[in-house]
Design a protein around this nucleic acid. Structure first.
Length: 572
DNA sequence: GCCGTTTTCGGCCCGACTGTTTTCAGTCG
């Protein structure tokens, strides 16, 4: 996959071009292209092979010029313009970009004056006090450079949504408990339920901004303070991400929520629509001349005033939702409260931590109508997978528990899809179950054709109700399998196999992009937590958030059905 | 370099914070 390389190269070209004021818009074009390619799910070389230059130009932010650059890189392995720029600026901009407060202009000045090309050089020069004498720099910026270099080590990559969401909620509770804020809300990518969080955004209303900021920087999870002002303060948290707190005036709260929820691309487009309506939209309000016509109103009023449907935060990524809102076609998205059961759970019998009864009791606390116990099959020895006899024996135990609890317990398995696409248990065993999840766990290094055939063969057994974590990816840890999801989705639709939206924090698989892609085929989904203990049930909200990012309504999701309809669906 | 219901040129979001300045440039989101 050349996507990562290309987005890194374009990003570096953005920095190099940014050093020249005349080229700043060209630079921005490279940055947009880098972001676009980074978020692209499909392999860019495949797009080029299938559709050529035209296909590349279909990617947002890629025009003729950049498409030709991509073509050059894909066919020759090099990009001339990049090599030329690199000769002129032998600076490691990619490394510098991980450093706060140090952009292309400063990097350029220090390269010209001191020959600094990377963070190690920069650290040495700062320690030797060579930077304070450069015009435009001083003692403070020298100290800040050293501080920010030490923070590069402390700040990891983007953290998982579950981590960010928990910490954001902790901070909100902490601030509300201090009685100096009258309102406190999470914004940013956490509110949009992005699978990873780069920084946490929190907005408050308070008439004592100074006090709020003092309390905030004193929060127990704060490692250090990055910037501190009356309206905005940024801290670095122990969990390895930064958190911005903004104090907002009550009359601007709605527009601030809209503004700071983002995404950036979504906001830029909404703001252009505001301009078309002769308004000016910013974080303080929607202005007609000098009058804020949104004063005191919620963010939904902004969308309505611009002739749009309200757009739920999870959809705000500029992936077509603005056009949908303008034509009043925003779907009624699935809600957490629509979920009537969890269909992927493990117990002590395979690799779970809790007993069957403990898992049942925990499921009842969620007020579910049904749950499915789905332990691993024998192929997965490391997870104590069970063989046919063990499953049949175990199901007797479940039957004996069924009368004791007022919740339907569905008997199932998470059966391995073996290398050739066959399933790891006898057909008769599988036929006796209420729910069969089939997943790939081993032999994952196959090419696209092999893996696609393997998964399709499993679906074609007509014994599979749910395709478990379809791409196998682990966020920040493991790449997805090479798999043609369009082909797989077609067969899932034909054989009434739901695709799983696995809600475990490090999986979220299918992800939003893949849901958008596969839902075109009219396929069903099942949102499951894959819980290995009683606490795992809480991850359902992450799965629902991901489904909402994929624009799903409750009609697409089988575990919103009542028990009767679900059983009918599972019988095919 | 991209883009288009202002469409092949002329725009490209805009305000807060910081440090080095004495009125502003750089960076960030």
């Amino acid at each position: 996959m050349k996507n990562v390389e290309l987005s890194r190269i374009f990003n570096e070209m953005y920095y190099m071009l940014s050093t020249d004021e005349k080229a700043r818009f060209e630079a921005l074009a490279y940055q947009r292209a880098a972001r676009s390619i980074e978020s692209l799910q499909d392999d860019i070389s495949e797009i080029y092979e299938k559709e050529g230059i035209k296909g590349l130009m279909g990617i947002p932010g890629i025009g003729k010029g950049l498409a030709e650059h991509i073509q050059e890189y894909l066919t020759t392995g090099k990009l001339n313009k990049y090599e030329e720029l690199k000769k002129k600026f032998p600076i490691d901009f990619t490394e510098f970009s991980s450093m706060e407060g140090f952009g292309p202009k400063k990097a350029m000045i220090l390269y010209e004056q001191l020959g600094i090309t990377n963070i190690a050089d920069l650290k040495k020069a700062a320690e030797e006090h060579k930077i304070r004498n450069i015009p435009g720099f001083g003692e403070k910026s020298e100290a800040l450079i050293l501080k920010n270099i030490s923070m590069v080590a402390a700040t990891g990559s983007r953290i998982l949504l579950s981590t960010g969401l928990n910490e954001a909620r902790n901070i909100v509770s902490y601030l509300l408990a201090q009685k100096v804020v009258s309102r406190c809300e999470i914004a940013g990518s956490t509110r949009r339920m992005r699978e990873t969080v780069g920084d946490i955004d929190i907005l408050v209303i308070s008439d004592q901004p100074g006090k709020v900021m003092d309390l905030f920087t004193g929060y127990k999870g704060v490692k250090s303070t990055v910037v501190k002002g009356e309206s905005k303060t940024t801290v670095l948290l122990d969990i390895g991400t930064t958190c911005d707190l903004r104090v907002i005036k009550p009359e601007s709260f709605g527009s601030a929520m809209q503004y700071f929820t983002g995404s950036k691309d979504h906001n830029i487009k909404v703001r252009k629509i505001a301009i078309d309506h002769n308004y000016k939209l910013n974080e303080y309000g929607l202005y007609s001349g000098n009058e804020n016509i949104m004063e005191g109103k919620g963010e939904d009023a902004i969308y309505r005033e611009l002739g749009m449907d309200y757009i739920p935060p999870e959809m705000r990524e500029d992936r077509g939702e603005i056009e949908m809102a303008l034509s009043h076609k925003i779907p009624e998205l699935l809600e957490l409260s629509d979920i009537k059961g969890d269909l992927h759970l493990h117990t002590k019998e395979s690799d779970g931590m809790n007993t069957t009864e403990e898992m049942i009791t925990a499921g009842m606390k969620k007020h579910y109508d049904y749950i499915a116990i789905t332990n691993h099959s024998k192929n997965l020895r490391i997870a104590h997978g069970m063989n046919d006899d063990q499953f049949m024996e175990y199901f007797k135990q479940i039957d004996s528990l069924s009368d004791k609890y007022h919740i339907k317990i569905l008997k199932g398995a998470e059966v391995d899809i073996l290398k050739d696409g066959s399933l790891d248990l006898d057909d008769n065993t599988l036929k006796s179950m209420d729910v069969v999840i089939a997943s790939v766990h081993m032999d994952t290094n196959m090419n696209t054709d092999e893996m696609t055939d393997r998964v399709i063969n499993a679906v074609k057994t007509n014994l599979v109700n749910i395709l478990g974590h379809p791409t196998g990816r682990l966020i920040n840890e493991r790449q997805p399998f090479q798999l043609d999801l369009d082909e797989v989705a077609k067969y899932c639709k034909e054989y009434k196999t739901a695709m799983e939206i696995n809600a475990s924090p490090q999986r979220l698989d299918l992800n939003d992009e893949n849901i958008l892609k596969t839902s075109k085929h009219g396929v069903y989904y099942s949102i499951n937590t894959d819980s290995h203990n009683i606490y795992g049930y809480d991850y359902m909200e992450l799965g629902v958030g991901t489904a909402r990012r994929g624009w799903l309504t409750k009609n697409n999701v089988i575990n919103t059905m009542n028990l009767q309809d679900l059983i009918k669906f599972l019988k095919k």
